[in-house]
Design a protein around this nucleic acid. Structure first.
Ligand SMILES: NC(=O)c1ccc[n+]([C@@H]2O[C@H](COP(=O)([O-])OP(=O)(O)OC[C@H]3O[C@@H](n4cnc5c(N)ncnc54)[C@H](O)[C@@H]3O)[C@@H](O)[C@H]2O)c1
Ligand SMILES: NC(=O)c1ccc[n+]([C@@H]2O[C@H](COP(=O)([O-])OP(=O)(O)OC[C@H]3O[C@@H](n4cnc5c(N)ncnc54)[C@H](O)[C@@H]3O)[C@@H](O)[C@H]2O)c1
Lengths: 208, 208
DNA sequence: ATACTCTTGTGAATTCTTTCACATATTTTA
DNA sequence: TAAAATATGTGAAAGAATTCACAAGAGTAT
């Protein structure tokens, strides 16, 4: 199978969200056209994206909402739960821990780590804060599959190296630095400054 | 001038960050090759991106770090400051308010809004929380140019409509819904769930 | 001065992504 | 049961983004 582009995966996420909503509204069938409209894509784009993974629709009718949703869930790996750890229980880290939507989606925050002695050993929204010193061991022991990095940018590479060393293959990063990971590790970064810069670019270069 | 792609703008952000670091390290000159390597791009990509905006390098030598940084800042609209407002002072909103790096970059959070009576009128990290009822008026009065939306997803469209109604042209959204804005408004969304789903896709489909 | 090295800037080639357009399958209507 | 309507699935076309490859400018060494 041809390698699937990142934009296709992003769009699948969006389709998935739309399908969740439709399911709640008891809509049973949706056409590529309607699915496209609700996300500002084209119908052809929707069909092409789905066609990479199989053919899920009925000609003349459209796609069955609940089946398609399940199928996308299976493609995106949302049928099982994932063991997630968070490193850095500061502003961003706290927000993430308290966000129950992730758990609901199957991303279970099993362990949280910090290096601040005032935080270690305390309960944080129901989870005990562990000492980052034991990171390697605890990641392995708890079979952690994804790690979220929310430490200060200056600490991030160090933490990433440890996380990679413990065999974790996927990392979500909130720090603002360029992090280096080996080929076989998937690192994605949430870069809010970059998003703001897209906005300032738009304002600074807006055609009058 | 040909329309510049979003990916070019994203890369400029990354170049900018690298140049900031280099400047701190007193590096005066950098080649496209080195600039590429530190971000896992290709040298040709770096040169092409920059060439859309002019020719800033010296053949045989490379680019002058500090000049190039300033030039990119000017392209991205980082030379001036922008008046930003935040709506929704919850977990995410609080994290953003306390993040001083944005201010340093010129994104000045002038006003913060909430609809929770327990929060309105109180000081939040040095900024008074205003009543979202006065949103329209206050956005205009304070000449707000960008708005960050950090309200629950169910409230987001309502807030966006008001913000657009007040003439704001750029919005950064943290809610997880598909928001509709008119053509001339730039909306960017930070979608952490989507990022996690890229990771689970990678794990679920990893070649062994 | 001249040769040599280095690295930019950029058309052209390539690769990747999106859109088109239509044959095909299914449902609906009559 | 046949015709009309609808919407998928997919090669092919078009469009974008990336990479190639090299002429040309600038510095350095001899
Ligand atoms: N707050 C924001 O809105 C925001 C926005 C954009 C980017 N970021 C980035 O997100 C990251 C976290 O930001 P924040 O505002 O939550 O910072 P923070 O200072 O509030 O939290 C960082 C936490 O990490 C802990 N920590 C420090 N070093 C550590 C280590 N080596 N191991 C484990 N824990 C360690 C600290 O004790 C603290 O609890 C930073 O890299 C920041 O650049 C934050
Ligand atoms: N917390 C996270 O880690 C996280 C992760 C991903 C996405 N999000 C999204 O970010 C948004 C904010 O999340 P949060 O965790 O900060 O939520 P939160 O509930 O902590 O904060 C929301 C804030 O918005 C205020 N609010 C509600 N309705 C409002 C209105 N109409 N006008 C003004 N203020 C209003 C509330 O009083 C509250 O202070 C949500 O849309 C959520 O889906 C959050």
């Amino acid at each position: 199978m041809r390698r699937i582009s990142e934009s296709t995966i992003s769009r699948l996420s969006l389709y998935y969200r739309t399908l969740e909503t439709l399911q709640r509204e008891n809509v049973t069938t949706i056409s590529s056209g309607e699915l496209a409209r609700s996300n500002k894509f084209t119908p052809a784009q929707v069909r092409k994206d789905l066609s990479f993974f199989g053919s899920f629709g009925t000609r003349g009718l459209g796609y069955p909402v609940s089946e398609l949703k399940d199928k996308i869930a299976s493609i995106l790996g949302l049928c099982k739960t994932w063991n997630v750890a968070l490193v850095g229980v500061g502003n961003v880290g706290s927000a993430l821990v308290s966000y129950k939507e992730f758990q609901r989606q199957g991303f279970i925050i099993k362990k949280i780590f910090d290096n601040d002695l005032r935080k270690i050993g305390k309960n944080h929204k129901g989870i005990l804060v562990s000492d980052v010193k034991n990171l390697n061991m605890e990641l392995k022991e708890n079979k952690i599959e994804m790690v979220i990095i929310a430490v200060p940018s200056s600490e991030a590479q160090k933490v990433v190296d440890e996380v990679v060393g413990a065999g974790v293959r996927t990392i979500l990063n909130f720090a603002t630095t360029n992090l280096k990971v080996p080929e076989n590790v998937v690192l994605r970064s949430v870069n809010m400054a970059m998003e703001l810069e897209h906005l300032s670019y738009a304002l600074a270069n807006q055609k009058r």
